[in-house]
Design a protein around this nucleic acid. Sequence first.
DNA 1: ACCTGAACACCGTTCAAGT
DNA 2: ACCTGAACACCGTTCAAGT
Lengths: 214, 214
Amino acid sequence: MFTLSTTKSKQPKTSGKKAYHHGHLRQSLIEVGLQVIAENGVRALTLREIGNRLGVSRMAPYRHFKDKGALLCAITAAGFTKFGEALESARISAGPNWEAQADALGVAYVRFARENKAHFEVMFGGGGEPQYLDREGAAIAERSFNVLETLVREGQQSGHVIAGNPTLLAQMIWATVHGISTLGLGSTPCDDATQQDFTLYCARLLRTGLSPRE
Amino acid sequence: MFTLSTTKSKQPKTSGKKAYHHGHLRQSLIEVGLQVIAENGVRALTLREIGNRLGVSRMAPYRHFKDKGALLCAITAAGFTKFGEALESARISAGPNWEAQADALGVAYVRFARENKAHFEVMFGGGGEPQYLDREGAAIAERSFNVLETLVREGQQSGHVIAGNPTLLAQMIWATVHGISTLGLGSTPCDDATQQDFTLYCARLLRTGLSPRE
DNA sequence: ACCTGAACACCGTTCAAGT
DNA sequence: ACCTGAACACCGTTCAAGT
């Protein structure tokens, strides 16, 4: 589960005593926090609970995070990093065809939301909260969006997309995939395939439009 | 603020003592609860706080709601009722033109989200919560969606919308307006006009499509 | 019926303290 | 540096009780 370097912090503590802690509490807090959210929702995220799961005192988290909100911010930032990677890698593995890339991106977006409910929840303020997004997180989040905007620009150059402000066009697409994700549209009730189908259906409609072409 | 009948409950209590309570605690709880959410978010909603604001004991709410979740359900249901009315009235006052109706509906959706943040938050599970939606609330919510689906059907009959499953088409539109609403797209940072512009922009794109018509 | 107080098991967070 | 315990001001909720 731990993907970090295994180098303990500064003092290896020659004794086998038990040590103050494993040495990567910060990362563990994020991972376990995410786990708790995945199991029971953001609402159930409790510093005490995290502490218990890690066999650590109630106050230990405060060594690494100013408060609960700071932990959530870190989780959010980690989420957007993963999110951006998922989008970008989906686009790349879709090959050179523009439409294939567009489809892949949409599907990846919706799939990420489904497969990382906990992260998605925190990332997009699924808490009525002021959205746990600090300066750093916001920058990462914007990078994710830029994958989409880049796609639009390229589509315009290759003649797949109409002229117009690429940012606005990207936002329009963004709204659609995001709406599908949050509304859980096309899922009956837990089906991944149907949701993917619905996403592709929407992607096609988005291209050709809702009004008849004469 | 109180739009209910002023008839006190059963016993008017001839004495001027102060009475057990004003007689419409249930409705007051919903209204004040909504107020608290509007001011500080769902997270800040506290039965105790509501009680305080109403000059009522901590336990009074339990007389009307099984628990906090039940209150939230009632708030949600009330929200969807208002929401459905907003959509329907927007459609009606848009006149007979189909496109005008479609635009009005989209704008009304996004505007509702903006002007009723608190309600919207609770209605669509803006809490990572299991979405406070009981059987009754779900029925009301579905009715709101049907306004949209009806519009699509009529659009198909009048030749404004391509053929296809009206439910899926409506869901596609729904996803878009919902995405705009939750992402707060087109708002810089609190501007109502620009968000409306953006919504209309999306509505047009939705009709004509993103790929060039040759 | 409708309201109340005391009490219980939970929170986040502060503080003084240990190694 | 990193961890800990006790303590404080909050929660939701149960219970026994008042009118």
